[in-house]
Design a protein around this nucleic acid. Sequence first.
DNA 1: TTATAATGTGACTAATAAGTCATATGACCT
DNA 2: AGGTCATATGACTTATTAGTCACATTATAA
Lengths: 212, 212
Amino acid sequence: MPKQTFFNLAEEKQQRVIAAGKKEFAAHPYSKTSINRIIEKADISKGSFYQYFDNKKDLYKYIIEKASEEKMKFLNQKIKDYRELTFFELLRELFVAGIQFKNAYPEFSEIGDRFLAGRNEALKEEIYSESKPKSNEFFVKIIREGIAKGELDPDIDIKFTAYMLTDFSISIVSYFFENHNPEDLEEIMNYVDKMLYIMKNGISRGENNGFS
Amino acid sequence: MPKQTFFNLAEEKQQRVIAAGKKEFAAHPYSKTSINRIIEKADISKGSFYQYFDNKKDLYKYIIEKASEEKMKFLNQKIKDYRELTFFELLRELFVAGIQFKNAYPEFSEIGDRFLAGRNEALKEEIYSESKPKSNEFFVKIIREGIAKGELDPDIDIKFTAYMLTDFSISIVSYFFENHNPEDLEEIMNYVDKMLYIMKNGISRGENNGFS
DNA sequence: TTATAATGTGACTAATAAGTCATATGACCT
DNA sequence: AGGTCATATGACTTATTAGTCACATTATAA
């Protein structure tokens, strides 16, 4: 957590520091980010930085937290009537919203992706344990409900499927941004539906295709 | 590519350098690896290092190449009668072999995972373009054959499915190593089958379950 | 106005990094 | 023995890093 000193600062100055941090953490892997560059960008002195934060990790954790909050806010906004959707409708909304979030908040999104893709397990554990959400648990919840409602195959392994979906929700967005124009909403929908088709029916040839 | 000087060295000395490099690249993200540590571990001087390699990337690329070769060799050994297997049998073999490779060559495996999970697209592109394989293309090939043989749903998007499987082949191994005992072959098979079940049939409740 | 507290500052230290270079060693050939 | 060439060396340079600290400035309160 930033020190009280930081929160006493004028809003504008806080924003300058956060903006500089966001830019830095979005541009480099964590281990290569530099406090020197951040203070230069934010136009504050080295001494000030250490009066606001314990160290680099302190700022990083704060920004990750903000990114996570922002994404939650965004998703809640996009997916209002969540209880009324079927599992696959909800999944579809989540993927689409994920792509839109990346468009709307590219820096936060990049930071989040870097964090999740990172292999510093100790750091991840530390940050996870201080904030609750874990998209994994969210998927576990909606899968349970999907099974209860009879929409999902009760034979699937819930924890594993949740892991798979978490992984996918990142992977599909990356795939899209690598291979297609992220502005094109129609194309987004097209790909999300392809992905849902596979999640729903699998890839085996069977007589199970054709029902939405 | 290492310089000729390196290949002129006694085999034992080459191995010492490679071993030190493997250890370093397995232990840290690329940007944090240190030539200083490598030469210390390998017990060679700084000057010698630069007589063997242009720079850190030169050694890194060489080691990535070796890891990739080693994995290919391993897979070819494990999966001999590849043409005679059905698509899902082959997929199963690939996942199991992937987990076994991680057990047998933990350092190479770690380096490979770090490389694939890395977000340095320029570096990846550079290394990819110099070696052909790309597991992605392999999946495209076996998916095409699976469709041709009538085993796979011809309506799936081939490129996207290949991307999905590539992603999965990494993800499932990570999941396994995070959550289970990687020595336990029975448990491995159990999880691989769960994953295949989902890939095959999807997660939707339907009348399509129950046939292997 | 004066005293106290909060905030700001950047030169400095101690590590560490990548890369260079003049010099040294030793093997092989004439 | 003398000469040539590949290999080996580590001190040195330049750049960058995280973090500290004595001091300066500004704001608040008495």
